[in-house]
Nucleic acid binder design. Structure first.
Lengths: 220, 220, 220, 220
DNA sequence: CATGAATGAGTCTTCATTCAT
DNA sequence: GATGAATGAAGACTCATTCAT
């Protein structure tokens, strides 16, 4: 692996473990056993590293949330796909969610890119909900689509922050993130078509189980 | 007003205006025209000031969310009271919501107090929802009370952070907070008893108007 | 002596001895046995210190070059005064002359102040030459007053740089500065009225002697 | 053109444009599209490049200021030649004049070469003035030849620095350099033989025109 | 109560230079 | 000849906190 990639990987690891603000460029360099100068050879500054990580993040988002049309959206398999994708991004880039505002307000360029990605997501999510409504999976009044997508985005974006505030340690476990995924379903539950009760129950059960792993295997 | 109180007031003002992390103890002292030493005579450290602010915060919360029992909970006046109280606390202590995790994870004692208050709130909120359900205002299945309160708490706790992330400036307007209050209603809407449609519509209209002040009078 | 003044004095000393660019804020602090933080308590940054020194510099200039009118300007005593003042400022702030452009182009505010002082000086110097011309001491054609003042200003401003370039060590001695003063007289010599030959010769002899001290007593 | 020469050419260009201290070895390499390692293959270090530029500089000087003997020195054509040569060297190596002391005191070997060239120049210049005096073009008392050559050298060596200090931008235009050439004539004017008034006036007019180009064509 | 000077560890960043390939 | 990754010492500056008066 190239040094440049090793830096990104190490930064992501340390950011996720210790919080972005507690990880200095010197920490990252020391962690890799390279000199600070070398790190600055590959990246102009710390924000530049975060930029690179953000690219990975938005790539994942774009790949995972390309909307499908038609009957596919009536299949639980597709629903699993989306919910798993939510979980994956939340976990892999949890430092980003945990320090969203610090990071965005320090770097306007990144903030603009973030807003662009959010805008795409909003459009896709609304299309998805409308499609599911027309597939008779959901029954969401048209005027509620918009506020609902907003609440859903907010839930996903700040679930980690919320959970971090609920716990004395800033670390979050995968289980806690699965609980967040389950909450997404909870918010949609009132709108689910009665016919789909069984499928919905299966989905919810799935993520509730994942969300209740007693001993978190990832952090002691 | 005593110096000690003036410090708390000034700190709250500056924190809300500029963000807690951007306000140093020297800023606060300079703002009041006192010496940093004097500030440290009254408070052991910066966290100690935040502690005092937090006391005001939790006092407000406790006063405002004491649950009522019986028919009172069927009255829109009471609902207004709660929603206005939510708004008030969000606005008055917005710096706290904007930097929740930074503040909590730096100071375990404060964090414990925060969790205690949240626990009280959770109990009260659940009682309120149950009471409203028994008053035939809402119809929330018992097993959904718990997750719903959690989502509501989360919505209120991170609405400011969410909105800050959506905007290029970290400043928050009152209008934006009223939109958050309106979202609380939105989440409850599916559970409202059909009979209460009119009252609900009035409530929602009220906060939507407040949330859509075109020119924000607080920040240009 | 207050710490703030001690910092200015130490900075001036070290700047003059080692060159402004070779003296860091940490050097200054270490030289005084104070912490870097303390230095930054008294001054916002390194330029701020230079600013303060520049104030002393321009104060001296303004005090020393207030022009006199009338017969006084025909007296050798007054000429000595001006030439000694030139020497004093060159010596006391030699670091400034030695690094003029680096310092000015790094700090626009200082640069503007510098230009303002230079403008004053130009006006005063031109008035002086005209006065001496009308007192029959000099005979400078009116159209040459302007370019001549410019050359004189330039000579004084860059004499130190010039001499530094001529020597393998960057240090300059007082003798070398006196040679600069003598050069000022040299440039004016062609314009001196024949009647004043004796006075001029005395003046020149005075500064030539000072400029030829064999062993420089100030630097080994 | 060989890489080694391309490096020298690029370095000179960038130094003149941006100032020697603002141009890193990496800048030069990047400007040429070569690697820093390659640059260091051809030159031991940054000073080594400056060394090479200095060779060009001194070659020009030596070629241009070889003194002529006899009647040739009474011809305005020769005077033009010398003054144009002064201009050419000032313009082509302006970075060197702008940072003379930084460059010399960093590199003793270069400094020694510089002093040697200056010594040659001094000898040649004095010979020239003496020759012109014996050709009845100038009338300089023998004891003033020496100090006058020194002032002239100083004027030429620091005219750029002086002008840079007078302007808020560090950039220098050709017009400004022509003004410097005109100042050389100004300093000699008092010594010019009355018979040569016409020729002198022509010369001065020539360089004054060049020195007063309104819109500087080289920098916007 | 109050002053304000002082501390010092820590942060990001730069750049001439080296070296294995 | 050339690449480009790597080094490391150094610099300016910040800020919560302490302490003598």
């Amino acid at each position: 692996m190239k040094t440049k990639d090793r830096i990104v990987t190490a930064a992501l690891l340390l950011f996720n473990e210790q919080g972005e603000s507690n990880v200095t460029t010197n920490h990252i360099a020391a962690h890799l056993g390279i000199s600070p100068g070398n790190l600055y050879y590959h990246f102009r500054n710390k924000n530049d590293i975060i930029h690179r990580i953000f690219l990975q993040y938005s790539d994942h988002l774009r790949k995972s949330f390309t909307p499908t049309t038609g009957a596919a959206n009536a299949s639980p398999a597709v629903w699993f796909h989306y919910l798993d994708a939510i979980f994956y991004v939340m976990w892999e880039f949890r430092f980003f969610y945990a320090n969203l505002n610090d990071i965005l307000h320090r770097d306007q360029e990144l903030h603009l890119q973030y807003l662009a990605v959010q805008q795409e997501l909003t459009v896709n999510l609304q299309a998805l909900l409308r499609e599911m409504t027309s597939q008779k999976v959901l029954a969401i009044p048209d005027e509620e689509i918009e506020p609902l997508t907003e609440v859903l985005r907010m839930l996903v974006s700040f679930w980690i922050s919320y959970q971090s505030a609920q716990s004395l340690t800033p670390h979050i476990s995968q289980a806690v993130l699965y609980q967040g995924v389950a909450r997404v379903l909870l918010l949609l539950k009132p709108y689910f078509h009665p016919d789909k009760g069984l499928e919905l129950a299966t989905l919810m059960a799935h993520y509730q189980v994942l969300g209740s792993v007693p001993g978190d295997p990832f952090h002691k």
